[in-house]
C-alpha cells in the first residue's frame, strides 16, 4: 500500500517540480537580455568600474606621476609583462651648517626612467595594481587592442619627460 501511495505522490511532487522549473525559465525569458550588440553600442555602453581593459599610469597636469620605480609590480607580475627601468637622479642641495657655512650635498635617488608594459603577454590578473604601494598604475576600460604588428603592443606607460609627483610638505 505504501508503495502505491508513493507512486501517486511522486506524480504530484514531480509535476510540482516541473512547474517550478518552468517558472524559473519564464523569469529568464522576461529578464533583460545580456547580448551586447558590439559595433552598434560602441561608446554608448557603460562598462563596470572594475573592468580591466588596459593598464595605464595616470599623470596630472604638470606631467607628473606617482611611480617611485620600486619595482614591486615587476616582481609580482606572473609572466614578466612589466619591466620597470629605473635611473638614478642626483640632486644637489645647498644646506647651511650650524656654523654658518654653505655646504652642497649630493643626494642620489632612484627614479623612474621607463615603465615598459607588454600588452601582448598581459593576463589582466591585476596583481600589479593591487600590489602597488603608491597607486601609481590603474586599469581603464579601453579594450579595443587589435593592431597589425606585435611591436605596437609594447607600451611605455610613463610619458616623455614626466617625473615623480612632488608632495606638498606641510
Amino acid at each position: 500500500m505504501k508503495k502505491e501511495f508513493g507512486y501517486i505522490r511522486e506524480i504530484f511532487t514531480g509535476s510540482y517540480r516541473l512547474l517550478q522549473g518552468m517558472y524559473i525559465t519564464f523569469l529568464n525569458m522576461i529578464r533583460p537580455k545580456v547580448t551586447q550588440q558590439y559595433p552598434e553600442n560602441r561608446g554608448k555602453k557603460i562598462y563596470p568600474e572594475r573592468f580591466r581593459g588596459l593598464l595605464t599610469m595616470p599623470h596630472n597636469e604638470q606631467n607628473q606621476h606617482k611611480c617611485t620605480a620600486c619595482g614591486i609590480c615587476m616582481i609580482n607580475c606572473p609572466n614578466g609583462t612589466i619591466n620597470v627601468i629605473s635611473k638614478t637622479v642626483e640632486t644637489v642641495t645647498n644646506t647651511t651648517t650650524p656654523e654658518g657655512e654653505i655646504k652642497s650635498v649630493t643626494k642620489s635617488k632612484k627614479a623612474l626612467d621607463k615603465y615598459m608594459y607588454d600588452l601582448g603577454s598581459c593576463i589582466f590578473c591585476a596583481l600589479c595594481t593591487s600590489s602597488c604601494p603608491q597607486d601609481a598604475i590603474e586599469w581603464t576600460n579601453a579594450f579595443e587592442h587589435s593592431v597589425f604588428t606585435r611591436d605596437k603592443l609594447f607600451k611605455q606607460l610613463n610619458r616623455e619627460g614626466s617625473e615623480l609627483i612632488t608632495k606638498n610638505k606641510e
Binding site: 525559465t25 529568464n28 525569458m29 537580455k33 545580456v34 547580448t35 550588440q37
Partner: peptide
C-alpha cells in the same frame, strides 16, 4: 527567437 529569449539572448537580428 523564443529560444533566444529563454536563454537571455536576442535571437536572430
Amino acid at each position: 527567437k523564443i529560444c533566444g529569449f529563454f536563454q537571455c539572448r536576442l535571437g536572430p537580428n
